[in-house]
């Protein structure tokens, strides 16, 4: 990133859906120094038709603060031009959007690494929890944390800075 270039950081938690294209346009508006934009969208997945919806709970205040801390770390580590991170809460139906991360950088590797880093840390340290609502009406369970997510996060401390 050229010295003095602005860093655009937007973090939002909301119940309503988001528009990835509109968020990309907002992140790059008025800027000619961004050469790469990587967009990740996480969706509510139903394996086997048993899920009616996911209920997303969060820790108000800390959720925003933790995602902001993660984004600032990524901006510093990969030299990003900006990040937009939007996380939905409340009841989310299968197929609907849950999370959006857009990483902007002068070049593609930083943008890919930035988006991946933010997601790996968001999943393991941003205070959100998913509860299942089952299609058959029986009480659903809280989703368990995955060991593979912890490994993905840990991998970032074993490799040199990307970019």
């Amino acid at each position: 990133m050229p010295a003095g270039a602005a860093v655009a950081l937007t973090v939002r938690i909301q119940t309503q859906d988001f528009d990835a294209a509109a968020e990309c346009a907002a992140l790059t508006a008025g800027r000619a120094d961004i050469g790469a934009l990587v967009t990740f969208t996480g969706l509510c997945r139903d394996e086997g038709g048993t899920l009616a919806a996911l209920e997303l709970e969060h820790y108000p205040g800390m959720a925003e603060a933790e995602i902001t801390r993660i984004c600032r770390t990524a901006i510093e580590r990969f030299g990003l031009s900006g990040i937009t991170a939007v996380h939905r809460i409340g009841r989310i139906a299968p197929g609907a959007n849950i999370v959006l991360v857009i990483a902007a950088a002068p070049h593609r590797h930083a943008a890919f690494d930035g988006a991946s880093f933010v997601m790996d840390f968001l999943k393991t340290s941003a205070p959100f929890w998913k509860k299942e609502h089952r299609a058959d009406g029986r009480a659903g369970d809280w989703v368990d944390a995955r060991e593979s997510d912890a490994r993905a996060r840990a991998a970032w401390s074993r490799q040199p800075s990307g970019g």
Binding site: G42, H87, K123, F128
Partner: peptide
């Protein structure tokens, strides 16, 4: 979490105003 920042179990709580207890996180 102490005052909305993660802490390890063996860290001092200090003069915490707010302490949160929760399971491993599953957002994203």
């Amino acid at each position: 979490a102490v005052d909305q920042e993660h802490v390890e179990h063996d860290e001092p709580l200090g003069s915490a105003r707010e302490i949160a207890l929760f399971p491993p996180m599953t957002g994203g």
